[in-house]
Amino acid sequence: MLRDIAYSLISAGYKIPKSVEEKIGRFSYQIYLAALLKKLRINCVLDVGANIGYFAENIRKLGYKGQILSFEPHPEIFPILQKNFKDDTLWRGYDLGLGSEDALATFNLNTYSELSSFLVPNASMPKTVNSCEVKIKALDSLLDDILTLVPEPRIFLKMDTQGYDIEVVKGASKCIDKILCLQSEISVRANYINIPSYLDALRYYESLGFEVADLFAAFRNPEGYVTEYDCLMVRSKT
């Protein structure tokens, strides 16, 4: 793959601009993801932490034609998401977060909406500018909705919740067997207070029967060190 070629060039002493390396990495990820969705015959994508719908729009461009359910609790961002999915009959959205139980929770709004979280950012992150109470639901409580839309779901669970991914999975105990693949943003260096470490996250997902398929750098600090990975995991023996 292009990513492997780039690493070979770097090892041979060639200097590749960081912007080019990042583009190669994203392209490699997209090609791999498209092949994985097809291989696993995924027919239902749960887009948790959807923001305005970047991920959903991207997988449509990659050729995915099945059902998409997007979840976004940010009150200012969800209306933009609605506009983006209004013409796609197999894409719908929910203005709530997912977690381990049905509840109300404080959502910390960041200047950069993608960094808003149920967790509090640490000193190295852009500061929270406001907060609000939002609804959280357990995925299990939405199972009937999913089964109505997709009677025999083969689910890909994509999570980008800024540290809340494990709580999302904890709320899916009754439907975990229907999740064939998941993507979780795992933290190597803590950007939020009390965020689970990447090792704890991997151990938890593995305890549920998932194994690592691949890791892609999601964010690097100014020194070039990876702070977060997008971790793709597949249910064993799918």
Rank of each mutant, 00 (worst) to 15 (best):
M1F: 14
L2G: 10
L2Y: 12
D4Q: 14
A6C: 15
S8V: 09
I10R: 13
G13I: 08
P17M: 13
V20C: 10
E21G: 10
E22M: 15
E22G: 12
K23P: 14
K23C: 13
G25V: 05
S28N: 14
S28L: 05
Y32E: 09
A34P: 09
A35F: 00
L36G: 04
L37Y: 01
I42D: 02
V45A: 04
L46C: 03
L46S: 04
A50L: 10
N51C: 09
Y54V: 10
L62M: 14
K65V: 13
G66N: 09
S70V: 04
E72K: 01
E72L: 03
H74I: 00
H74Y: 01
H74Q: 03
F78S: 02
P79K: 13
I80N: 01
I80W: 00
L81Y: 04
Q82G: 06
Q82M: 07
Q82Y: 00
K86C: 09
W91C: 04
R92W: 02
R92K: 08
Y94C: 03
Y94V: 04
D95C: 15
L98N: 01
A103C: 08
L104E: 13
T106V: 13
T106P: 01
F107V: 06
F107K: 01
L109A: 03
T111Y: 06
Y112C: 07
Y112L: 11
E114L: 10
L115E: 02
S117G: 10
F118C: 06
N122T: 15
A123R: 10
A123Y: 11
M125A: 13
K127P: 10
K127N: 13
K137Q: 09
A138I: 00
L139S: 03
L147Y: 07
T148R: 14
T148W: 12
V150F: 08
V150C: 15
P153C: 08
I155N: 05
M159T: 02
D160Q: 08
Q162M: 02
E167M: 06
K170E: 03
K170S: 07
A172R: 06
A172H: 06
I176G: 02
D177G: 09
D177I: 02
L180Q: 03
S184K: 02
I186Q: 07
S187Q: 08
S187M: 05
V188S: 01
A190P: 11
Y192S: 08
Y192M: 13
Y192K: 07
N194Y: 09
I195V: 15
I195G: 02
Y198W: 14
L199S: 12
L199F: 10
L202Y: 10
R203P: 00
Y204D: 07
E211C: 07
D214N: 13
A217H: 11
A218I: 04
R220A: 07
R220W: 08
P222V: 05
Y225C: 11
Y225W: 11
V226A: 09
T227G: 05
D230R: 00
C231R: 05
L232P: 01
R235V: 01
S236A: 00
